[in-house]
Amino acid sequence: MSEPQLVPLNAIFSTDFVEILVPVTTANTMDEVAAAVAHHSEGRRVRALPYPKVVVHNGRALPGDLTVGDAGIQPLDHVAVEYDTTGASS
């Protein structure tokens, strides 16, 4: 097993208008990536909501336990982090 590699990502959170560069590693899970991205926007420029977060890469929502390396995400790829409201009641 090799050491985790740095993977800087271009990321945007929910309805934020600021795209940020977030350093993660190939060993980080999508849940960890979502938290890292949200840290810079949620409660600052985007209202915090009581829903789980999901990472979207190339139009595909990724499972929270999938690692950056296993997802095939490359340095400087673009990801979006959205609130997962699919389980929310109306």
Rank of each mutant, 00 (worst) to 15 (best):
S2V: 05
E3A: 12
E3T: 06
E3F: 00
P4T: 09
P4R: 04
P4M: 05
P4K: 02
Q5L: 13
Q5C: 06
Q5K: 14
L6A: 15
L6P: 00
P8V: 06
L9F: 06
L9Q: 10
L9M: 07
A11E: 08
A11K: 08
A11N: 11
I12N: 11
F13L: 08
F13R: 07
D16H: 13
F17G: 14
F17I: 15
V18Q: 14
E19Y: 01
I20D: 09
L21A: 15
L21W: 00
V22N: 05
V22T: 15
P23R: 09
P23D: 13
P23A: 09
P23T: 07
P23F: 00
V24G: 04
T25Q: 03
T25S: 12
T25V: 02
T26Q: 02
T29I: 03
M30T: 09
M30Y: 05
V33P: 02
V33G: 05
V33W: 03
A34M: 07
A35L: 13
A36T: 13
A36M: 13
A38W: 04
A38R: 11
A38S: 15
A38I: 07
S41K: 13
S41V: 02
G43I: 05
G43W: 09
G43Y: 12
R44S: 10
A48H: 09
L49V: 05
P50M: 10
P50S: 05
P50A: 10
Y51E: 08
Y51P: 10
P52E: 04
V54N: 02
V56M: 09
V56N: 12
H57E: 03
H57S: 15
G59F: 12
G59P: 15
G59W: 13
A61N: 11
L62I: 12
L62C: 10
L62R: 05
P63R: 13
G64W: 10
D65W: 03
L66M: 15
V68W: 01
G69T: 04
A71F: 07
G72N: 02
G72A: 04
G72Q: 01
G72L: 07
I73H: 07
I73W: 01
I73D: 04
Q74P: 01
Q74G: 00
P75V: 10
P75S: 07
P75A: 09
L76K: 05
L76N: 14
V79M: 05
A80V: 08
A80I: 08
V81I: 11
V81H: 09
E82I: 04
E82W: 12
D84Y: 02
D84I: 03
T85A: 14
T86H: 10
G87N: 07
G87C: 13
G87P: 02
G87S: 10
A88G: 09
S89W: 12
